[in-house]
Amino acid sequence: MKSEIDKIYLIDRFLKGELSGLPLDEFKNKMRTDKEFAQEVESQKAIIEGIKMARREQLISIIKSQRTPETNTILSKASKIKESENTFKIPPPIKAEPDTEIKEFKLRPNYNNWHFAVAAVLLSILGFYFIFGYYIPHQKLEVAYQDSLEAQNNNLVNNQEKESETTDKPLNNDGIEKNDSLKQNQQLVQIAQVDSLKIEKDTKISETLYSVAAFETITPDGANTNTNVLTGETNDDLRVSNVRKVKGTSVKVEFWQSVVNFKGYKLNGNKLLLFDIKRDENVNLKFLDNQLYLKKNGYYYKLNGSETFETYKKETNIEIIKTLESN
């Protein structure tokens, strides 16, 4: 066996070209004289070629796995092979054998990623809903709102101009000025119509400048205090107060109709906004000790200055009501 291993090793060295000098001459001589030996060399050579080819194919398959298939190149290769077959009878190279199979690539839907498709569809639906169901209508609403605000501003400017004209006009017995712009203002309906979209807002019915009478109570020192002689206690209920008229103040009163039927007022400085007061309803304003009171349907309401809207609160103090009634 040892000699067999050495023989194969020697043939390997010869085939690799590693023999030289005398060993090479001896080897060649043996090949010439010993036909069996020559046969063995040839068969070993063929087997080595087969081993090399197998390794080569292995490496080529690794390289080919890196190639990206391009349809045009496959086609060009196919046409090249066909052409060469027609023109020359060249024996096909060994390496080309696995290559000559033209791979066919078909585009098929990848059903493994169906969840991505579902997600895409749902996102598209959401997108459409946002654009057509929310964004565009919202834009239209905003435009309508801007238009209505503009209209309101224009009306206010007009009213202010007319107000300045009417301040010099005489007042009637109730102290209520007959405003010429009332009819115009009654038609001030803040409804904006944009593409059949209506926005209804609070309506200003009229506005008037009132000259409000003012009173104040005078309490002379000790004059109106009843003191019990026995106990020495004072009784405020029995106090007697005098009222005197002081200089009145002008109050600009605006009558409004609320969309949501709000019943109340807002007093800011000398400007008073009254909601839910009918046009033919008799109202009266009076100042008592710098407090404004509104008389409506026989009742007195105390009006407090505020930045916000307040509801009507009836005055329950009989003394005050009596004082207001008697003046």
Binding site: Q39, E42, S43, K45, A46, I47, E49, G50, I51, M53, A54, E57, I94, E97
Partner: peptide, 11 residues
């Protein structure tokens, strides 16, 4: 020179 064995078969 022709090989004794077909290389492809050896492979």
């Amino acid at each position: 020179p022709m090989l004794i064995y077909d290389t492809k078969i050896v492979c």
